[in-house]
Design a protein around this nucleic acid. Structure first.
Length: 856
RNA sequence: GCCGGCUUGGCGGAAUUGGUAGACGCGCUCGACUCAAAAUCGAGUUCGAAAGAGUGUGGGUUCGAGUCCCACAGCCGGUACCA
């Protein structure tokens, strides 16, 4: 390393201020009911997506969002808000468990060691968290309430009329059977086809399956009993209640697409006296249905298949069953087999052949479709391949568009008896009504969203607070008094290949009582992150998951309610942000939280790329370590640089040279007040003066412009432009012979949320010499206001264009009339040069800005 | 394929939302200080010798377009037969 002397002594004062904030609990915020709580202040809840404490430590992506929220938090505090700004750890997870398996160490040891590293690193950056509210999802005191919420789900069903969760005890009272109730619980057990890896001993999400297979693991399709959460019950609310939120439109769209609402109809076809119901979004095209397709797993396939086709159908079913969802969609080449059976189309009594094909999915709609090859691309492709008939029923309105494979809505019905001549949307409406009237079907809304597979075969997760009765085979909740239910201490938590997961090996733990054994699955990592933002409100409460009064203050009451600002990456756009909304709504239905949505405002920070504009990764060797940057340039420089790189939301590449530039800027701020003496020690330079005759100097004007700009930019979260304004202000001070202490302190003040250490240090040094300054920290003083009078200019520069091209600039009095400005513009020598020999057709005067002279 | 987003100097990015394109920073050039270098300070820096041209490309609206409209291209992200 070079022997470069630090441009200012951040290595000394940064840790010193962090120690002060720690010891004095400068950023601790009180709850209602606590002594000293100021109820007159408005609240502001500023939340970060809490990190998974990986072994690699913090990367530069973390401080990006965290600095943004820290600036907002500090700014809001200075503006008189009670600011809740907490931090915690999403500490369950597979990497810790795999590391544990490899090293033989218990996952809690590595997890808590990693947390210590993360905490150290975050404190090193001077974030103003209230560390007394720190939580970890793996803490028994946290697990207890995660399991408690799970039991809420378990004991609930979704009441379709009230459109909210209600306790299943209501149904018991109505005489529902145990089986009926189990079929409607929000947390339920179901047999389903899942991706199972025998050598890893766990189920895998569809997204994970291919990845692990390519690493040499075995992944097979297997029917397993799994815990599911009935998120589909909330599909409608998850779409509707998304609308008013202050979220990026792109994220809302992502969620909307994921939930995938579509409006259509179910239509009953008959086949050998049996009813086969299909789902379609295009009931208008029923007259164009020329065949039917069932998914290979459809329950009626075996019943209707004819003897001649039996062999072919079964062979096809076998092939499909072996494929994962991913493999099934890998090739869009259509495959399928004729069942030999025919269905009767209710609209015209015509017989159409029934096929099975894997392009029809079991899990969506009814698992059966009517195929309208003329107006559906997939059906069209299939019909062409297997030589099935194609009947036109829609004529596109645009005459140039061929009707074959026309799937649009801008068309007119043909060959459709009573629908002929109608527009597509109108025909859709009329056909749905007709089906309902005749009892052939009904209008139906469908969602792509599937229920949430909630169990994992892992050790390092929350165990389900559930036991199984060995006699009746039913599941039962354990009493709340037994929470938290922790994993047993185990020497060997390696996967065994048993689909019940590693906990089966804890034979004593499993045996709950003579007739009851414990559920051995654990919850996914998402469970803890579904409600952590609520636990921060009241993290030490051992009576309730939150005190209702506390919840009301932080989440409800004040407009608009919920978390006021939530910042994190786009990678959680659908999973975490959907799951958390779902849990929140269940809690809301029970009156346990005050708002139906948890996060009122969401902002996604953009990814930071490596210096090579590629995604940072170990294999590329372009990873930047925050520890190195802090050592070399200081925490303030890292914070400021990450905010200066570009707009928070954009993807942007890292440039270490840019950090140097920021470091130079902070050094210039330092040297406005400080100079080195002969011994090489820093001391006040004498440039800062107490003398202040009230004159509005250029520096003072600049300071007030800066206050205005920084205030507006923080509100708009446009931190990069705020910083460039503060640079201009600093440059003005550097160029001035003297700077009054009040002007300088105001600059320090607006810079404080961005670079808290250097500003507090300079302020505390100034306080010793200028004893009239308030003796408390800058971060505890009110945000400065600008004086509008200082911003008024008495002259203005006016741009003069001839035919839209810049030709001259003139300076006029700020209050000059339109006529005066026009006259001055026409008098310009440059204008006369460019209009010579031409006729002036028009003169446009934009007050205070420009004059455009049109001449030819 | 479908759905989003982005495209401005050598680089990261500004531009009061239709009104001086290139703020601020990096880099580079020159100068001051120094025996010298680093650091620091100061000047310059879109291209072009100039006329002029210029915000991915081509068209349009307008007195005036980076900004609005139409068409296209490239890159990034999401999604994947959802009937």
């Amino acid at each position: 390393m070079s022997e470069r002397k630090n441009p200012y002594p951040f290595d000394v004062f940064e840790p010193a201020w962090q120690a002060v904030w720690d010891e004095e609990k400068t950023f601790k915020v009180l709850n209602p009911g606590e002594e000293g709580f100021d109820a007159t202040k408005p609240k502001c809840y500023v939340l970060d997506m809490f990190p998974y404490p990986s072994g690699a430590g913090l990367h530069v992506g973390h401080p990006e969002g965290y600095t943004a929220t820290d600036i907002v938090s500090r700014y809001k505090r200075m503006n008189g808000y009670n600011v809740l700004h907490p931090m915690g750890w999403d500490s369950f997870g597979l990497p810790a468990e795999q590391y544990a398996i490899k090293t033989g160490q218990h996952p809690s040891i590595t997890t808590y060691a990693n947390i210590d590293t993360f905490r150290r690193q975050l404190k090193m950056l001077g974030f103003s968290y209230d560390w007394d509210r720190e939580i970890a999802t793996t803490d028994p005191t946290y697990v207890r309430w995660t399991q408690w919420i799970f039991l809420r789900l378990y004991h609930s069903y979704y009441n379709e009329e009230l459109k909210k969760a209600r306790p299943v005890s209501e149904l018991e009272a109505k005489g529902w059977t145990r089986e009926q109730i189990d079929n409607v619980r929000l947390a339920y057990v179901a047999e389903g086809m899942v991706n199972w890896s025998p050598d890893m001993g766990t189920v895998l999400a569809n997204e994970e399956a291919e990845e692990w297979k390519s690493k040499g693991h075995i992944v097979e399709r297997r029917k397993l009993r799994q815990w599911m959460l009935r998120i589909t019950a909330y599909a409608e609310r998850l779409i509707d209640e998304l609308e008013p939120l202050d979220w990026p439109e792109s994220i809302k769209l992502l969620q909307r697409n994921w939930i995938g609402k579509s409006m259509g109809a179910e239509v009953n076809f008959t086949c050998q006296g049996k009813t086969i119901t299909v789902y379609t979004t295009r009931p208008d095209t029923l007259f164009g249905a020329t065949y039917m397709v069932l998914s290979p797993e459809h329950e009626l396939v075996n019943e209707i298949t004819t003897a001649e086709q039996k062999e072919a159908v079964e062979a096809y079913q076998t092939v499909c069953a072996a494929k994962s969802d991913l493999e099934r969609t890998e090739s869009k080449d259509k495959t399928g087999v004729f069942t030999g059976a025919y269905a009767i189309n209710p609209v015209n009594g015509k017989e159409i052949p029934i096929w099975i094909a894997d392009y029809v999915l079991t899990g969506y709609g009814t698992g059966a479709i009517m195929a309208v090859p003329a107006h559906d691309s997939r059906d069209y492709e299939f019909a062409v391949k297997f030589g099935l008939p194609i009947i036109q029923v829609v004529q596109p309105d645009n005459a140039e568009t061929p009707w074959q494979d026309f799937c649009g809505y801008d068309g007119t019905m043909v060959n459709s008896e009573h629908l002929n001549g109608l527009s597509v949307p109108e025909a859709k409406k009329q056909m749905t009504a007709w089906l309902e009237e005749k009892g052939y079907g009904c209008g139906k809304v469908n969602y792509k969203l599937r229920d949430w597979l909630f169990s994992r075969q892992r050790y390092w997760g929350e165990p389900f607070p559930i036991v199984w009765n060995t006699k009746d085979g039913n599941h039962y909740a354990i009493p709340e008094s037994e929470l938290p239910l922790l994993q047993p201490e185990m020497e060997d938590f390696k996967p065994s290949g048993d689909p019940r997961g590693p906990l089966v090996k804890a034979t004593q733990w499993i045996q709950y009582s003579e007739d009851f054994t414990r559920e051995t699955n654990t919850m996914p990592q998402w469970a803890g992150s579904c409600w952590y933002y609520l636990r921060y409100l009241d993290p030490k409460n051992d009576q309730a998951f939150i005190d209702p009064e506390v919840e009301k203050y932080w989440m409800g009451g004040n407009n608009p309610g919920g978390v006021d600002l939530y910042v994190g990456g786009t990678e959680h756009a659908v999973l975490h942000l959907l799951y958390a909304r779902f849990w929140h709504k269940v809690l809301y239905d029970y009156g346990l939280v005050s708002t139906n949505e948890p996060f009122n405002k969401l902002v996604n920070q953009g990814l930071i790329l490596g210096e090579d504009s590629q995604k940072m990764s170990k294999s590329r060797g372009n990873v930047v370590n925050p520890d190195d940057i802090v050592r070399e340039y200081g925490a303030d420089s890292l914070r400021l640089y990450e905010m200066f790189m570009g707009p928070l939301k954009e993807v942007k590449p890292w440039q270490t040279k840019g950090v140097e530039g920021i470091s130079r800027f902070l050094a210039r701020v330092w040297r406005v007040a400080m100079a080195e003496n002969q011994e090489g020690e820093w001391e006040l330079s004498g440039k800062i003066t107490a003398e202040d005759n009230g004159e509005v100097t250029p520096v003072r004007k600049e300071v007030h412009k800066t206050i205005k700009k920084v205030t507006e930019d923080i509100e708009a979260m446009s931190f990069n432009t705020a910083i460039s304004k503060m640079m201009e202000c600093t440059n003005a001070m550097t160029g001035a012979a003297t700077v009054t202490v009040s002007d300088y302190v105001q600059l320090l003040h607006v810079l404080n949320p961005f670079a808290p250490h250097i500003t507090e240090e300079l302020y505390s040094i100034l306080c010793k010499q200028f004893t009239t300054l308030p003796a408390c920290q800058l971060c505890q003083q009110p945000w400065p206001t600008f004086n509008p009078e200082y911003l008024v200019e008495n002259t203005k520069e006016i741009v003069i264009q001839v035919n839209g091209k810049l030709r001259d600039k003139i300076t006029v009095a700020a209050d000059a009339s339109k006529e005066e400005v026009e006259a001055a513009a026409l008098a310009s020598a440059r204008v006369q040069e460019f209009t010579a020999g031409k006729t002036i057709r028009k003169v446009i005067v934009v007050p205070g800005r420009l004059v455009n002279i049109v001449a030819n």
